[in-house]
């Protein structure tokens, strides 16, 4: 099973991932990270793990892995 991980501390609330998410699975949370930004949160029911958020994110917030193993091709 694919797993999406969000490194909240790296998020700078730029919103590029939210704007490009094809399934509207991303939104800003109500929490603040230590830098004072509201980090993104993922709606797991909507997320299809396409990786577009990873592609758009300038700050390495996202990681998508298969069965806990990350990196590489399919």
């Amino acid at each position: 099973m694919d797993v999406i991980t969000v490194k909240e501390e790296r998020c700078k609330e730029c919103g590029l991932c939210i704007a490009h998410c094809p399934n509207e699975a991303l939104s800003f949370s109500d929490r603040l990270n230590s830098a004072g930004y509201k980090p993104v949160q993922v709606d797991d029911a909507k997320c299809i793990k396409c990786g577009i958020c990873y592609t758009m994110c300038p700050d390495g917030v996202y990681e998508i892995s298969h069965n806990g193993e990350s990196g590489g091709e399919d």
């Binding site: 694919d2 299809i48 390495g60 990681e63 998508i64 193993e69 990350s70 990196g71």
Partner: peptide, 11 residues
């Protein structure tokens, strides 16, 4: 199946 994505270790 989606492609696994991880930021490369050097950055």
């Amino acid at each position: 199946m989606a492609k696994a994505r991880k930021v490369p270790a050097i950055i």
